[in-house]
Design a protein around this nucleic acid. Sequence first.
DNA 1: ACAAAAGTGTTATCGCTACACCCATGT
DNA 2: ACATGGGTGTAGCGATAACACTTTTGT
Lengths: 250, 250
Amino acid sequence: MAVKKENSIEKVLGHQFSAFYKIPIDNFFQFALSVDCVILGYDEDTLKLLAIERGAEPHMRKKALPGDLVYPNEDMDLAASRVLNELTSLDDVNMTQFHSYGQVDRHPVGRVITVGYYSLINVDQYEPLANSWADNVSWLDVKSLPELAFDHNEIVNEALRSLKQRVRLQPIGFKLLPKQFTLGQMQNLYESILDVNFDKANFRKKILGMNLLKDSGKLQSDVPHRPGRLYSFNKDAYESLLQTGYTFEL
Amino acid sequence: MAVKKENSIEKVLGHQFSAFYKIPIDNFFQFALSVDCVILGYDEDTLKLLAIERGAEPHMRKKALPGDLVYPNEDMDLAASRVLNELTSLDDVNMTQFHSYGQVDRHPVGRVITVGYYSLINVDQYEPLANSWADNVSWLDVKSLPELAFDHNEIVNEALRSLKQRVRLQPIGFKLLPKQFTLGQMQNLYESILDVNFDKANFRKKILGMNLLKDSGKLQSDVPHRPGRLYSFNKDAYESLLQTGYTFEL
DNA sequence: ACAAAAGTGTTATCGCTACACCCATGT
DNA sequence: ACATGGGTGTAGCGATAACACTTTTGT
């Protein structure tokens, strides 16, 4: 053991009001906490981001992530679900926390820590809702995002990076697809998230070989080409494969 | 657009002191922020966690993660580096943020949000330091952790889960090894992190096939068996492979 | 007839698994 | 001599990549 330092605060949290330490603990309760939600959907063969338009300063009129301050007596995870619900009326959707942002100067009003959550939703189940902080809700193409409010561009990029990793190792891509989908749609989705091209034949063999899809027996209709077979994700099959040590990949 | 809700706070952040909203914005600045550091090392063929022993209530005498409150004018990432530095004298070590914890009741003193960071360090370069919140620093075997203070067990488990994912896709395992190491040590490390067994011959072929190791020409000494060849991680080789689209795996 | 996407089959190759075997060092 | 881990070679299997080809729909 070498130097002995006495400048820490953690111990204050223990002693609470010990006169020994110079900084009263109350001085540390000056932060606000917010959540920002990166809500992704997939429509017209492109990945879309749900954005609001700010109706107030700062960053008036800029596009922004839906986000909100967390109430002092509200759990963080619940706050994220609340925001999503207020905006989309969606319920029971997993919000996944991916990163927190704590730069001193990131918010002009004061020291606001924000926690980023993302969620993959099925646009068919989505019904846009206006509310006090979201007059104008729209889907933006993630490939060509404008400049967003605050540090929201950085937050979105981080979410996409995180998505890119997770989507290869867990069957979460299905959350973006309609309940029933063709293998073509699925391939398209993975290609646009991962930014690669797959060989059609090989992609099908791989996916069908996983035995995670249930064939609905139905076909597409009203498409100007041969209609594709409609599949749905077989969650039960996945759960039981997990027991046997199976891991989804690619 | 359907219902119009007026209960949000985000807009308050815009108007700041608008009389329209019931809740004054000041009411939201009641949080404290802390960082908790999961510092992992590898010694005697086992993965170890750096822990302190608390010298104050709450959780007096329990083992805990080194952590500290963040100053109101201090960047979060810097706070994490500060804690590591105060405890180990190590500098220039990447602290990687992995998850934040915002349960209302997680800290008895008040609403404290904590952000978890982890870091992989080389125990050879580590020199333990005492300070005001860490009288008693020790390495714990991660396979048999005791009950830790606060929600620190949960935090460690999350860090290990995160490590398990990352270690397969990025060459970060080397951070835990001495500068020069044998393939046997390396295999051992990966086996204990991932909790699997590799075939010796196959592991070597795979690793050497990556061309990420530099053969030092030297051999181990003072081992009661045939001495192993010592390699070091070739960071330059990795960087240039990255350019070509290479991705490390397993 | 044509465009466009669905859907299938074949082949060659690469990588991984399993396993057998030899080597060098300290006790 | 033996225990211990270092180090290597090979045969077989399975997954993957590349590519050519057929099928079914709407216009």
